[in-house]
Computed example of a mutant assay.
Amino acid sequence: APNLNLVVRGTSRSFVFRYMLGGKRKEKSLGSANTITISQAKEMAEKFRVGLTEGTAPMTPKEVLDKEVRADLTFEDYAEKAIEKIANVRLWKNAKHKAQWFATVRAYAIPVLGKKKLSEIKRADVLAVLLPIWSTKTETASRVRGRLENIFSYAVSDGLMDFNPALWRGNLDRDLPPASKIQQVQHQESMPLEELQEKIGCFYPATTRTKQAILFTILTASRVGESVPARWDEIDWENRIWSVPPERRKDQKPYPHRVPLSDQAIELLKSIEKKGDHIFGVSEESLGSRYTLTKLLKRLTGTTATMHGFRSTFRDWAAENGVPDIVAEKCLMHTTGNAVVQAYQRSDLLEQRREVMQQWADAVFSGVSSAA
C-alpha cells in the first residue's frame, strides 16, 4: 500500500506510515506487527491519506484518545498546574508570590470558569469574571486578567485552546476601559493598600480620639458602628480579644463576635487615656457622630476614601495573600455558607483569624519603622 512500510530492526517489526507535510518528510509509527495485522495497518494508512488531503496530520487511535481526554480538561484542572509551571519557569523565589496567584485565581476565576472545559472558554466567559470587579477592584481585576492571559497562553501552547481569550489588545479592550483611566476618575471609596501604607502617617501616632478611632477600625477591619462605641470592658487583655456585643452585630447573632487583637491594636489601646466607659468617648446613643468620621478621614488624607472602604481594602488584601475565603469572611463578621454549612461550621476560627489580623496589621504598618 502507498506510504505504508514494514520496518525491520533486528527481531522487531513495525508498520510505519511515511508522508510529506509542509515540504518535509515525516513518518508515523502505527505499531508493532505483533499487535496489529496488515489489514489494520492498511486501514489506518488509508485514513491518514484521506486526512492529509484535508490538511490533517496523521494521528493514531491512541493519540486521538489522548487528545479527546485533554480536550475534556476543565479550567480548574489545568490552572493550578499551569501556575506551578509558570512559577518554575520564572524561578520565583518568594513562595508568597505563587500563593497570590493561586488565591486570586481561586477567588475570582474558578467560581466562573472552574467547571468549563478549556476548549469551550470564550472571551465572554473572561468578561464574566472581570466585569463585576473592573470598576470597583480595578487593581485586583487587572492582575486577574494578566494571570488568566498567562495561564491560557500555556493552554494554547499545549494545543488545548485555539485562542487566548484573556488577551487585552484587540480583544478585551473593546469592552473594558483601561485600568489607569478608571483609577483616575473613580471615587476611591476603597483606598488601595499601597495608598493606605503611604497615608498611615495621617493617623499614626494616634494623638487624637479621631485618629485613634480610625486606626482601631482599620486594624480590626470592623464597621464604624461596631468600633466607635467600643467599651473598655469589651477588651480581654490577657487573651488579646475584643468582644463585640450581640446588640452591635449587624448579622444579629445572639452572642458576642470575638476579634483577635494584633500587637499594633494592643499598643494603640494602651496609648489611650481612660476617660470613661467608652474607649473613644462615643456611646451607642450618640452614634450620630460616627457619620462625621468619613468627612474627617477625607480631610486628614486628602482622598475620597470612606471608613467602610477599609473593609474592602482588607478583603482584597486577604484574597491576594492566600487567606481562605471562610477565614476572611469571618474576620469581617460576614455570614459564611448556607444554614447546613453554618450548623457544621460552628467555630469562629479565632486562632486562624488571630494570625491573619496580625499579618494585616503588619502589612498596614509596613512603612512605619516605629510600629510594633
Rank of each mutant, 00 (worst) to 15 (best):
L130S: 02
Q100P: 02
P111L: 09
K96V: 05
A87W: 00
I121A: 10
A166V: 13
L131G: 01
A155Y: 14
M161R: 14
Y154L: 15
G51A: 11
F75Y: 14
V69A: 12
V64M: 11
S142P: 00
F75T: 01
A103L: 06
E80F: 15
P165L: 14
K116H: 04
I121L: 09
N88P: 00
G170S: 09
M59T: 05
E84N: 15
R106A: 10
V89C: 01
W134Y: 11
K67F: 12
S153V: 03
L52H: 07
N88L: 11
E139W: 09
N88V: 05
G170Y: 12
T56Y: 12
I110L: 12
M59Y: 04
K98H: 01
E80G: 06
R106T: 09
K116M: 08
G159S: 13
P111V: 13
R169S: 10
E84T: 11
T138E: 05
G146V: 06
V156A: 02
A99K: 15
D173V: 15
K116A: 03
L52C: 07
G170L: 14
K96A: 06
K85G: 01
D175G: 01
T138W: 05
T56M: 04
I86M: 08
K81A: 10
V89A: 09
L118T: 01
P61Y: 10
K122I: 07
D66Q: 13
L91E: 13
A95M: 06
L167R: 15
L113G: 02
R70L: 14
L65E: 13
V129N: 07
R106M: 03
R147G: 00
V126Q: 04
V126C: 13
L172N: 02
A141S: 09
E84I: 15
L118R: 08
V50P: 01
V112T: 12
Y78Q: 10
F163P: 00
K85D: 00
L131D: 07
I133H: 11
Q100N: 11
S157W: 09
P132K: 10
V105R: 04
D173A: 14
E68K: 14
D162H: 10
D158I: 13
G114E: 07
A109Q: 07
